[in-house]
Design a protein around this nucleic acid. Structure first.
Lengths: 233, 233
DNA sequence: ACATTCAAAATTGTATACAAAATAGAATGC
DNA sequence: GCATTCTATTTTGTATACAATTTTGAATGT
């Protein structure tokens, strides 16, 4: 329960709830009531209310008037849309970042890639290690967006990544497709550092397309399995 | 004061304030206090607070803790970013819309274009007429995004358009560059209806680029003029 | 006359009280 | 035994009360 310390309780609660949802402590479809969260976080209902409002705009919970809030459910179509948009926006972020990157930024990105490789090479990997590797993998994309210097682009991409993050974790943790992403991240970062914008953009777009296909295939299989179970019962 | 009727006061107030900001009734930089708005809209502070929170996430107001809210100020850089992103996203929306458009949608778009032409051809144009023409002009883009069927794309574009809309109005109303946009809208819609995706996308991107250049030139001139005034005093 | 300090006023942040609506459960009628 | 209705409970929506902080203005000292 990471209770980030912020200036206002509203922001603190918003951060805490976002973390709970993204890490799966609050699973999709879970019913959340203001009162429960208020007592659990030891604040009054007011900041919880305001945090839930923000989360609704974030697209992480859905709230129907006078019916309460539930954690946003799993939605294949949403993923398809998110990744198609990311192919455009991440590609653009890479293009901008290649032009504006500084030496310090290059070191920052390379360090993240190295850390991923270190975690991948561990003799025995705890699920926490895999968790952390995935986290850093997504942070690489967030960092590239930040380096791009386009504030609006960075905000849009962060919002989309937040929406996807916890599903990606849930579904992908056991799959070893992730090894591919590791190499791709390395190549993207090196292309950016080398100043080869065309190559960096194309690698980025291919990387997003590849992730999209992997995840959609996995989600489709899971969906098929569930409808098979439903038909069998 | 357009007080849209919604299920909850929060949403109603949010809509009202958004309209007030977008139409310039609440000008950029204006200080807004919860209490004033509460008495003006005849509700308590609570729904006003929640609406202001949403507006802050919308990027239409900025609020610093315990210092109140102000309507988001004018920012050339933000426009530059917004239009560069729109070139990607509007282009993509056009591509998707060309593939999925129905006969009813075609009629809807053509009717909007016709309405713009009708308003433009009026012998004596009130400022209300010009206002409405601009409104419909932006609604054409929102409609294309809606037709694309990509819900997330539609949401992102609507958010960006909201942020730009009122500045565009303020600055562009007197300029007749708008006549160009009228023709371009016609061509875009016809290309979409003809199913010529490549042409429709390229027209859309060129249209956004053109609008971007016009607006940035105008804003830059205004900014230069203001710094000239400041230096002269 | 100007700067500094202290206090009062205004404004947001948080908590709680009250009202309205929806859901769930029990009781009753068939 | 099942369906239907009514009530009771739960939960959100709104209002208000209180606390904390910031700002502003006046008063005082130099």
């Amino acid at each position: 329960m990471p209770t980030r310390k912020k200036n206002t309780l509203r922001e603190s609660v918003h951060g805490s709830l976002k973390a709970m949802i993204v890490t799966g402590q609050l699973p999709p479809g879970a019913r959340v009531t203001e009162n429960d969260l208020a007592v659990k976080l030891k604040v009054s209902r007011t900041p919880v209310r305001e945090a839930l409002n923000r989360l609704e705009q974030d697209g992480l919970v859905v709230g129907r008037p006078r019916q309460g809030y539930t954690v946003k459910e799993f939605d294949i179509q949403m993923f398809r849309e998110a990744f198609e948009i990311r192919e455009l926006l991440d590609g653009y972020a890479t293009e901008l970042a290649t032009a504006k990157i500084t030496a310090a930024d290059k070191e920052r990105l390379r360090e993240m890639v190295r850390e991923c490789e270190r975690l991948a090479a561990l003799p025995t990997r705890s699920s926490g290690d895999m968790f952390q590797e995935l986290q850093i993998g997504m942070d690489i994309h967030r960092t590239i967006a930040e380096i791009s210097g386009n504030v609006m682009l960075c905000g849009l991409l962060n919002g989309i990544l937040d929406k996807c993050q916890h599903y990606v974790w849930m579904e992908l943790l056991r799959l070893d497709e992730w090894g591919i992403a590791r190499d791709e991240h390395f190549e993207i970062v090196e292309a950016i550092c080398a100043g080869d914008a065309a190559r960096a953009v194309e690698l980025t777009r291919a990387h997003i397309r590849g992730s999209r296909n992997n995840i959609l295939r996995l989600l489709q299989a899971k969906s098929d399995y569930q409808s098979f179970l439903a038909r069998a019962s």
